[in-house]
Amino acid sequence: MSFLIDNFVELTVTGLVLGAVYGLVALGYTLVYGVLQLINFAHSEVWMFGSFAAVWVTVALGVAPGSALPVVIGVLLLALLAAMTVSGGVALLLERVAYRRLIRLDAPKLVALISAIGASFALAEIMGLRDRVAGWFGLRDTLDPYVRSARDNTRFQNPLETEGVFTVGGYTVSNVDIIIIVSAILMMVALDQFIRRTRTGRGIRAVAQDSEAAALMGVNRNRIIRATFLVGGIMAGAAALLYLMRFGVTRWNAGFLLGVKAFTAAVLGGIGNVRGALLGGFILGLAENYGSALIGSEWRDVVAFLLLVVILLFRPTGLLGESLGRARA
């Protein structure tokens, strides 16, 4: 208990940082669920691929920490772009390969879930076997810096040096902390505006509310579904870079745990609810941190899973209520 009190500020800030990442990944779950009422189990791999894209960009550019600020910013922006592109691409691939046929056939939800589980395994394994896959094409040596130790942790060399900005309650809040929390909030606001104001956003809301009526009104449902996957993927790509800036490592199977937690965040905020996703992320991040401070850090994941179970059992519509369709316009 005293540990919690002594480190309250640190736990809170890192909880919010973690929560920001959860929230951005949760968007992918929330959007797809809102539009299709399906749990996109493979969304975790969308994030994972984005994280590798970010790592590879920094490896390719080889910028040492402490470079000039414009260079650092340039590299980070490139990494962000790469992560978003790759994540968005993987999300679209997922829609094409794992979902499109089943959506067209109006297959039972469980079949779609199993399809997504299969896709999730395949994607994670491809990343875990990337050295072998490169070997097929005779690129094993050429690509060595990108594919070596495929089953181990991959480090992200953050070009931005972590610096303290101000100190509160014995904890020095760093520039990275601020960047992560602020960018997550900004992205959430941007997405919220996108959903409310653009034509595609209106289409997403319309399909979420009543897919058939939307189709009758001339909304191209398939296009909207693709757009939904793409937007969710882009957000996951951003989350991947932010995550790496703070935690520094990724791994072929890192997606699973983060995915389950992000899904928890989505449910917590009310699945299908865009604003709820970030709120759910923050609450989950804080709960994990406070919880592990109270009962021991080895129980961190149990706290998250318990929270998930309790929420699903007692308030399955989440804190802010479900429904993307009713996103206040």
């Binding site: 399906l38 749990i39 939800k109 469980l110 879930l113 389950v260 899904f263 449910v267 021991g296 080895e298 129980w299 994941d301 149990v302 899973f305 318990l306 998930l308 179970v309 699903l312 059992l313 399955p316």
Partner: peptide, 24 residues
């Protein structure tokens, strides 16, 4: 009482809780 696809996630959570409890 939870609906179909949520049940999948809840049971997944329980499975992990059991393993993590044994682990800790």
């Amino acid at each position: 009482r939870v609906r179909g696809d949520y049940l999948a996630i809840v049971t997944l959570g329980f499975g992990e809780i059991i393993r993590l409890t044994a682990l800790n």
